[in-house]
Design a protein around this nucleic acid. Structure first.
Lengths: 229, 229
DNA sequence: TTCATTAGTGAACATTATGTTTGATAAAAG
DNA sequence: CTTTTATCAAACATAATGTTCACTAATGAA
């Protein structure tokens, strides 16, 4: 997407990256501590130790900072996804792994996601996630559409329905401190959603387990995720 | 619940009912106009033409007023439900009608519900609705539980999943200006959800159409709901 | 190293909303 | 008619937001 080399793409003033990072970290730690809503810009300023004017030089408001932080996580998730796809050449059903990896990823960053998506922070992020997953799933589904001429339910509705259902499972899992491992949640989603997919499109779907991954964004890899492996 | 007669249970100062009603109406019309979030207490004061102190004499804040208004609607819905149950002595599967009536009811008050539950007003109401529906559905489901010894998915999760799915359909419907009649939405929900229920509990569910109902809360019965009957 | 450029500072300020308090007023209830 | 109680207006304290500006310091390119 961007010009220049491969390892180095430096064009940004160090000060900028520095203050941005400070503000992100401040926001993140504050979210974990007291939840997004109750955080004030002043809180962020104090924690990050930056001037008021500096904040508004970078972001329009609290929400924009949150969104920006969240996009970090999304990027990370996508990198992990790609690594996984690259490392495995089984090839088939990439969207099947997707859901398991989604649970894995959010589990790894559960403190953040719980604070961010656990209903405590505005629906903004949930909306974002919804859109993201919707686009992720609409591809495979439109393919399926071609096989069945007149599906009993409009595909848009089915997709919306399934995304919401998946998200509900995810937020439930986070809100309840992840009482099951990601694999179990993945299985549950399959059990509950597969018959719906079959009813809406008429097709068999298969079930797979999947692999592992690595940690980044060190400060917020939370450690104590899930009871047993 | 309360003491005294049958038709008359007046114990409340007229002034109280009057100002409360004024504030409710103010909030409702404002929600329809500009969405909940952007409404300020001052807006409500101006529209209702009540003093600032009066407002805080009745409600702690905006949210409490909204919640109170919403409970009005819930009461109305329950009345309609009971009338329906009373008028029909077919008796079986009362929860089957429930979903259709839910769509009918929200369709009738779509302006309010769209403003209130259409993602524009905080998740507060959605949460409330979720809890409400959850309790509504947990009864029938625990019955089903007894039939199957070890359901493959914990009932709590299944219920949560189904409620979320139902709500997603409902909000989608409202957000998209109710492109289908309630009957169609009811059918769609059945198509999508029934196989899940069967997978989670192992049982057949039947499909019914249902009747009509009446209007109240006149100011906000919106009229132009849904394309064709 | 030098130096023009760019980012960060902090303090003041305007603005907007919230929620509380007061004593006076008017409308109910009995 | 009298007592009680809800409402009112107005002022107030508080708190958060977002902007401005002149000053300072770090940066990176020459």
């Amino acid at each position: 997407m961007q010009k220049r080399g491969f390892m180095k793409e430096k064009k940004e003033d160090r000060r900028i990256s520095r203050t941005r990072k400070l503000m992100h970290e401040a926001l993140m730690s504050l979210i974990v501590e007291k939840g997004y809503e109750s955080i004030t810009v002043q809180d962020i300023l104090d924690r990050a130790d930056v001037g008021r004017s500096t904040f508004y030089l970078h972001y329009r408001d609290k929400d924009e900072l949150l969104l920006s932080s969240f996009e970090h996580l999304r990027t990370l998730f996508e990198q992990q996804q790609q690594e996984l796809v690259a490392s495995r050449r089984t090839g088939k059903d990439p969207e099947v792994y997707f859901i398991l990896e989604l649970f894995r990823h959010t589990g790894q960053h559960h403190k953040l996601y719980k604070a961010i998506a656990g209903r405590q922070s505005g629906e903004m992020i949930l909306k974002y996630l919804h859109r993201y997953l919707f686009n992720m799933l609409i591809g495979p589904n439109t393919e399926l559409m071609k096989k069945r001429k007149a599906p009993p339910v409009p595909i848009e509705i089915t997709t919306h329905y399934l995304v919401s259902a998946l998200l509900s499972l995810l937020t439930w899992w986070l809100d309840n401190n992840m009482p099951y491992p990601p694999e179990k949640m993945d299985e549950i989603f399959r059990i509950l959603a597969t018959p719906t997919i079959e009813a809406a499109f008429g097709r068999k779907t298969t079930i797979h387990p999947a692999g592992s991954q690595k940690a980044f964004y060190d400060l917020f890899v939370d450690g104590d995720c899930c009871p047993d492996k």
